[in-house]
Design a protein around this nucleic acid. Structure first.
Length: 1150
RNA sequence: AGUCCUGUAGCUCAGUUGGUUAGAGCGCUACACUGAUAAUGUAGAGGUCCGCAGUUCAAAUCUGCGCAGGACUACCA
């Protein structure tokens, strides 16, 4: 063992004047880049088992915000941790380059609208502009990524618009196609007739699109056809039988093809009159609606009227017979009730027979889960063409559709007198709208036909096109779908194997989403995206899905041969050549893909379906497409799929998390990721969402400049769990800097200061564990025990994706255990005495603590900890192996008794404060009642420590059984409650009322009989807690079961000793003020002012005073009759209120 | 509208399987300590544990119904 040596350099451990985290980050970053530390970390683990991470591609056409710092920090933490744990962690960057946000940005920039595409600007030019725009901010993103310390392979990102990437996407689509999981069908989409384009949900979610509007609503009457199925409704019939259904869009009534009811709901049959024609009729509606009185008021119920009549007089006429047909106070009468499922399958007459439905049955009552009794009649008028729910339920029941509105928003020619009219008045050019909207006209027509029950204005929110400001329609458009619903069970089953953080996102938000799964609408009528690789003949009878460029090239060759195309547009491409240069000769975007015409098996030309695919499919394809699978790297996929871990914002739950899961389940029947962390939002400090509009967005670069990435990351992680929303407050970062980083920094600086002075050399790794274990003190072993417990705790929590718990534990350890306890109580060992084994043990212990803390914190604060670790060991922390907890060093008993010492110390200091005795004044005695043997043992072990810390001479243990301590008794509710049950309250009251004699009796007897509420109960010693409360005549404090008494009488000796300490304290302060180094020796002289107290103090304690202040003055020369006049080393000091003196201190020559 | 998250001191957050004095840090006030410390110690002020109802001997904790903030999905007669 050679702990103290001449080092090669002057100062082995660098010391710093101040903590500048941004500067540290900058310097360390340069070092990483110079040394390619990231590359080294991969090289180091190149043969290690992989830990697979996927980077969710951000869209690089927007600037990064502070929330991206959060998301990227989380990703980085677990990748670094796993690297330290010995795994190989590849992290490939990626960019999401397609989609609407990019198109919108480009349109804004070029000052064009969607309609201009293909007219003012060619698709080719448009897409070129998108391609250029999309990587605009990559530099800014890369810069932020580097600055926050996120290790990511930015040199070789996957980019979704690259031909190789698209080829993999096509391959995946082909896999789906071959499994019959891709189909074309109608879907109801938000559509703006004014703009002539479908709208995405993104567009629909623009602010201000939903506006309150007043529409004409109608309760229409659908006439039931009388047949075997409906016969029961005609028993005792009163006129025709109708089903009532409500709509706020009367223009959809001609396109009605079904009525939807709730199968489990009760429906009532009601006899009444038509309000507009006065004809007798029988109607059907949901029973709760009837009872609500929305359409039928109780006062018009004949049963009720007759009842009143009876009380008034005998010969009142039957109101049902004498109804005047005025439409007011229409009598009605209940005539039976049925469940919804009794009504299912009943047929009715078409309400407005303008058109004939296609593709299935029609005019039938069906069951659906979306029907409520909130609005309307409990029966939903179902027009599959104009409602998503309608379409879905119609499909389930094989109901046909009727679309009597064209793409301009006008009624079609079948619509007779309505043909050519716009269904919404807003669609007419300004000033040309008719007085009566078609909604009103249809209502009037229904009234005249006797098919209306009620017509009124209804105010509700309705979406508007954000560009034209006119109401949108829901309209059926041709779309391609992925049949995810056919694999629903598999999706759900596989999801259950995923480790979601937090769990509720997986079971709740994501689980529910899967339970209510709809087929995935892949189609987008856009320009900048992956084209759908499906070619069709004009009649749609023959189609071909292309799954590779090779296949495409072959088909092109056939087509050229058949004379459909003059030449092969990708002639330069060689399918066997995987070079980028080769792939760069091909562009699969529009319009190039559209220009390719293939030939069908029967020889007909086939053109591409013009749709693009949903950009979410691009990102969900990244596990495969980033490798250009299966065309390259086929073997790699085994190692790089599925991911062990991914992380993104919770807003990706139904976005990227879903598309990854869906594609991997459908194509590979596997999960795409084993664990996923979904982080919450970053809000401003008031809990408001950050937005440019509100001006409360935080600039990530400014924040990093000001505080450094380490503090920002530590703050974000330690403040709240990643999945909780973070209220971002810069004050919090300052606090983290002050508390955690400064404590760590100061502790290191303290270590470096004395380690350099003593030329301490830490043991090499090989020597570790064979060094100075024998010389370790109680406190060394304590802090090492805490340290090893911390290693275990941090390890578990990083493994379980709980970084917040790890960060908080590390922070507590550094601030409380190391800085405020271990270093404070042990500092003398570092600067006092010889360089012996005790000192070496202290250095070794502190060194170990700092080194391990650096390793445990490295995932979260990568820059500062690397600097710290390098300063301590010369190596890079990110290339280090995660420390192993040494169970042998974990001593819970030791941790317990140290806790007792800390409590005792705190109590004594509290008494000192109360009594006005500063800690420098020694006191004679403290007394502690001992509750049991364990406590006695603990006290003996820690008494030195406590006495030192609180400056008391002796600790007396009091045996509670023989002492005259006053006791306090408290029931143990948990134990007693279980036994006593209802008597608990009375028993507690009785116990709290015990006097000292009763307590003593219980203690000696072990049990006590009580009579409570007339019942005999037995109280056991274990049912209560008995504590010593006061010690008569002494100053006392207590905390829980622990009580301390302090003897505060001061003898002359104690007083003198106190003054000696005061003197030392003054001299130390002067040393510091004079700018002396801690190692400087001094000459100390004290002027004899003739006060006997002073001379006695100096005589009695001179050895102590001299050694504490590093004075080299001989003991008998301290007191002098005169000080050198005018010397800069002369000072007046005050020891207490009555004692003053003058002294001089001068730096000694050696 | 549905699903999910959050609601505890002025602020940021802990709070075990329900157990009676609900905690910590920051901030504030006062005092002390300081030869590593813009540190620390002690004390004080500060609470309708979002509300209501229920289960229970006992609810911050469990259940139900609401309220507020947030997220996502949907927008439906």
């Amino acid at each position: 063992m050679a702990a103290f040596q001449e080092p090669a350099m002057d100062k082995r451990f660098p010391q710093y004047d101040e903590l500048d985290l941004p500067k540290v980050a900058e310097e360390v970053l340069k070092q990483w880049e110079a040394e390619d530390t990231f590359g080294q970390s991969l090289e180091l683990r190149k043969d290690a088992p992989p830990f697979v991470f996927y980077e969710g591609p951000p869209s690089a056409n927007g600037l990064p915000g502070i929330h991206h710092v959060m998301a990227r920090a989380i990703k980085d933490i677990f990748c670094r941790y796993q690297t330290q744990k010995g795994k190989l962690v590849h992290r490939k960057a990626g960019w999401d380059t397609h989609g609407l946000p990019i198109e919108l940005g480009v349109e804004k920039e070029l000052g064009i609208t969607k309609e201009d595409i293909g007219k003012k600007i060619s698709i080719e030019e448009y897409n070129a502009a998108c391609k250029k725009a999309v990587m605009r901010y990559t530099d800014v993103w890369n810069d932020m990524t580097r600055r926050i310390g996120f290790w990511l392979d930015l040199e070789h990102p996957y980019v979704t618009y690259k031909t190789k990437y698209i080829e993999s996407v096509w391959w995946l689509l082909k896999q789906l196609y071959d499994q019959d999981l891709l189909y074309k069908g109608y879907t109801i989409q938000p559509y703006s007739p004014a703009a002539g384009t479908g709208l995405s949900s993104h567009e629909l979610n623009q602010p201000g699109t939903y506006k309150p509007v007043k529409d004409t609503s109608v309760v229409a009457l659908f006439k039931v056809k009388r047949d075997a199925k409906s016969e029961f409704l005609f028993a005792d019939a009163f006129g025709d039988v109708f089903i009532m259904a409500w709509t706020t869009t009367p223009w959809t009534l001609p396109s009605n093809t079904a009525l939807t009811i709730m199968p489990s709901q009760l429906y009532s049959r009601v006899k009444t009159f038509n309000p507009y024609t006065g004809e007798p009729q029988t109607v059907i509606l949901a029973k709760p609606i009837l009872l609500m009185g929305r359409y039928f008021q109780e006062k018009n119920n004949p049963d009720f009227l007759r009842e009143i009549a009876r009380t008034l007089g005998p010969n009142e006429p039957d109101p049902f017979r004498v109804y005047d047909g005025s439409g007011k106070n229409i009598p009605w009468k209940r005539a039976g009730e049925y469940y919804g499922y009794d009504l299912e399958g009943i047929r009715y007459e078409q309400l407005l027979p303008y058109g004939t439905p296609e593709g299935g049955d029609a005019f039938k009552v069906i069951g659906g889960d979306f029907v409520t009794t909130e609005d309307g009649t409990g029966v939903v008028h179902t027009a599959p063409s104009f409602g998503a729910d309608d379409m879905r339920v119609a499909r389930q029941h094989n109901i046909g559709t009727l679309t009597l509105v064209d793409l301009q928003g006008r009624f079609t020619k079948e619509m007779g007198e309505f043909a050519g009219k716009y269904v919404k008045n807003e669609y007419y050019p300004a000033g040309t709208a008719p007085e009566k909207s078609v909604d009103v006209e249809i209502s009037i027509k229904l009234k005249e036909m006797g098919r209306a029950f009620k017509v009124e204005k209804y105010e509700h929110n309705y979406p508007h096109c954000w560009r034209t400001d006119k109401p949108i329609l829901y309209y059926p458009l041709d779309s391609w779908f992925v049949r995810v619903t056919s694999k629903k069970d598999r999706l759900i089953a596989l999801n259950k194997t995923i480790n979601w953080k937090p769990e509720s996102t997986g079971t709740g938000r994501f689980g529910n989403w899967l339970e209510n799964l709809q087929d995935w609408n892949l189609s987008r009528s856009r320009y900048w995206g992956v084209p759908l690789p499906i070619w069709r003949t004009e009649d749609g009878d023959e189609e071909l899905c292309i799954g590779s460029l090779k296949q495409l090239k072959e088909e092109i060759a056939r087509s050229v041969a058949a004379g459909n195309m003059p030449a092969d547009p990708i002639a330069a491409f060689d399918p066997a050549d995987m070079s980028d240069a080769n792939y760069d000769t091909v562009d699969l975007h529009r319009p190039y893909a559209d220009n390719i015409v293939l030939v069908s098996p029967s020889g007909k030309p086939m053109t591409r379906e013009t749709d693009l695919i949903d950009v979410w499919f691009d990102s969900g394809a990244m596990p495969y497409a980033q490798l250009h699978y299966p065309f390259e790297n086929e073997a790699d996929l085994k190692e790089k799929f599925p991911a062990d871990f991914i992380a993104e914002g919770v807003d990706q739950t139904r976005g990227w998390f879903y598309t990854l899961h869906a594609i991997s389940t459908l194509v590979f029947d596997q999960v795409a990721y084993k664990a996923v962390v979904s982080n919450g939002l970053v809000l401003d400090k008031n809990g408001q969402k950050m937005s440019k509009r509100l001006g409360n967005a935080v600039d990530p670069f400014k924040t990093l400049d000001e505080y450094g990435a380490d503090a920002v990351r530590w703050y974000m992680i330690s403040n709240a769990s990643p999945w909780d929303n973070l209220k971002f407050d810069a004050e919090g970062i300052t606090e983290v800097q002050r508390k955690f980083f400064r404590a760590l920094f100061n502790t290191y600086n303290f270590f470096a200061l004395y380690a350099n002075i003593d030329k301490y050399v830490p043991p090499s790794p090989r020597e570790k564990g064979s060094g100075d274990e024998g010389a370790l003190t109680e406190m060394d072993r304590w802090v090492l025990s805490r340290l090893n417990s911390l290693i275990k705790l941090a390890d578990t929590n990083y493994t379980e994706y709980e970084p917040t718990i790890a960060a908080r534990a590390i922070q507590d350890f550094v601030v409380e255990d190391v800085s405020n306890w271990y270093v404070r109580l042990n500092r003398r060992r570092f600067w006092k005495g010889d360089t012996g084994t005790d000192k070496s043990a202290a250095f070794q212990t502190l060194h170990r603590c700092l080194e391990v803390v650096a390793m445990l914190s490295a995932p979260i604060a990568p820059f500062f900890t690397d600097r710290l670790y390098r300063d301590l060991t010369g190596a890079c922390v990110h290339l280090s192996d995660w420390p192993k907890a040494d169970e042998k060093l974990i001593d819970t008993e030791l941790e317990e008794r140290t806790k007792l010492a800390q409590q005792l110390t705190s109590l004594v200091l509290s008494i000192r404060k109360k009594e006005g005795h500063r800690v420098r004044q020694p006191l004679q005695r403290m007394m502690v009642p001992v509750l049991d043997e364990t406590m006695r043992k603990r006290l003996s072990a820690i008494q030195e420590l406590v006495l030192n810390e609180v400056n008391v001479k002796e600790l007396v243990m009091l045996d509670p059984s023989e002492s005259k301590l006053a006791k306090k008794i408290k029931p143990d509710f948990k134990k007693l409650g279980a036994r006593m049950g209802k008597l608990m309250k009375s028993v507690a009251a009785a116990v709290n009322g015990f006097d000292q004699a009763q307590i003593a009796a219980l203690e000696t007897e072990g049990s006590l009989q009580l009579t409570v509420e007339g019942q005999e109960v037995e109280l056991l010693r274990d049912d209560v807690e008995i504590t010593a409360e006061t010690i008569p005549g002494l100053s006392v404090a207590s905390d829980g079961q622990l009580t301390v008494a302090l003897d505060i009488t001061l003898s002359d000796e104690l007083r003198q000793e106190g003054l000696a300490r005061e003197l030392v304290s003054r001299i130390q302060t002067l040393r510091k003020e004079s700018g002396f180094e801690v190692t400087d020796r001094i000459h100390l002289h004290i002027l004899d002012v003739g006060d006997a107290r002073l001379t006695r103090i100096v005589q009695q304690h001179s050895a102590y005073i001299l050694s504490e202040t590093l004075a080299v003055t001989p003991e008998d020369q301290v007191i002098v009759s005169s000080l050198p006049a005018g010397s800069p080393g002369v000072h007046q000091v005050e020891l207490d209120d009555t004692l003053q003196c003058a002294l001089s201190l001068v730096r000694s020559a050696n």
